[in-house]
Design a protein around this nucleic acid. Structure first.
Lengths: 198, 198
DNA sequence: CAAAAGTAAGTAAATGTTTGTTTACTTATA
DNA sequence: TATAAGTAAACAAACATTTACTTACTTTTG
């Protein structure tokens, strides 16, 4: 049996993210992707059932999974609140800086019904998705360090500004001067922390 | 000369937003839209040059413009900081609750390169886009009420969590119990305000 | 221990469908 | 009656996916 060429599999995923990032999800076609990845359309369909299946797996495995892993590096739920939040923010900033294309598909995850559905299904099925972060909030709320709010509110207050800053960071890459520096990022993180404290 | 039917023009825009919201931007085609709006494809091309032109105008006029108008209602740059932020948040929440389809396209504005480009061009051309909010931050920073940060950081800290909460609000509409209540929304607004104060 | 057989990986080209847009024509009103 | 608004049907190009075939490797066999 002919063994599969792992380089081709990776090229398909990598180039898909590139096209989505540069031209938009609505401009990604299977034929265009195959051509750009130097592969026959059929090759994509060996691994993925159809386009929908491909996009969902790309989103969940390549983007969500890698993001989750990166953000939780050296983070534990029992960290002191400010230190924990700073760790999550710096982890995320570092990861996205090095994975711009993944960030683009991540953003689509918030608007596209297809990916949104995938996200919610995963969230329900895998109860331990971001579980350490859940637990981190829970512990700090119990200890009276932060206000008691639903997890959804914690996520909105803590992560939404971070995403927006990363977005701005990429926008400014195409302009003469970058304003989203590590210093500014840290200042914003402080503001978010302060807002959540009791 | 036969006068144009304004109802048809509106149907085109309304139904486009509906399709984008329910099936995603990538599933909106001109022929599908025409059929759904009970109109010949040609009719769309009377007013709009092509699909790109249509989407950009839909995004800017129907979504951004209406959002801007709604959010600035009874808001002035000289308002006291907490009161001003609360006004912006409640205006936005009310507007989106009544315009779910517009919110969907708004979210795409952050991911789609096409709409993103349109957004940035508008932002540059019309210097007074959200000018009252700009000025509001400027005044409060000068007065020493809030930290001094770039406008981009203010926007990230102030608006990003609000958008995320609206997003959650719509997600929870399809579940047994709504958790994004006016009360929770107000609590989160307080947290954001507190974080920005000096 | 080489050569043949078996097999999944891979390709190029074609499938029928849907796409954005246009053509040739009709309709409604100033 | 002049004219822009509107329609139905058509256009080539691009779409997702499949068909029919070849390739490259593993395993079995003589």
């Amino acid at each position: 049996m002919r063994p599969k060429n792992l380089e081709k599999e990776e090229a398909i995923r990598t180039i898909a993210l590139q096209i989505i990032s540069e031209e938009g999800l609505e401009n990604l076609s299977m034929q265009k992707l195959a051509k750009a990845a130097n592969v026959s359309p059929r090759t994509i369909y060996i691994k993925y059932e159809n386009k929908e299946d491909f996009l969902i797996k790309l989103f969940i495995d390549e983007v969500l999974g890698a993001y989750e892993k990166a953000i939780l590096e050296k983070f534990t739920p029992d960290m002191e609140f400010a230190a924990g939040v700073k760790k999550l923010w710096t982890n995320a900033f570092r990861y996205f800086k090095n994975n711009r294309h993944a960030f683009a598909l991540m953003q689509y995850g918030k608007s596209s019904p297809l990916l949104n559905k995938a996200y919610q299904e995963r969230d329900i099925k895998e109860g331990d998705y971001f579980a350490p972060v859940h637990r981190f909030f829970e512990l700090n709320a119990k200890a009276g360090v932060i206000r008691k709010l639903p997890q959804e509110a914690y996520r909105a207050l803590l992560f939404a500004p971070m995403f927006e800053l990363v977005n701005e960071y990429f926008d400014f890459l195409e302009r003469p001067k970058q304003i989203i520096t590590d210093k500014l990022f840290a200042d914003c993180c402080d503001a978010v922390i302060k807002g959540m404290l009791k």
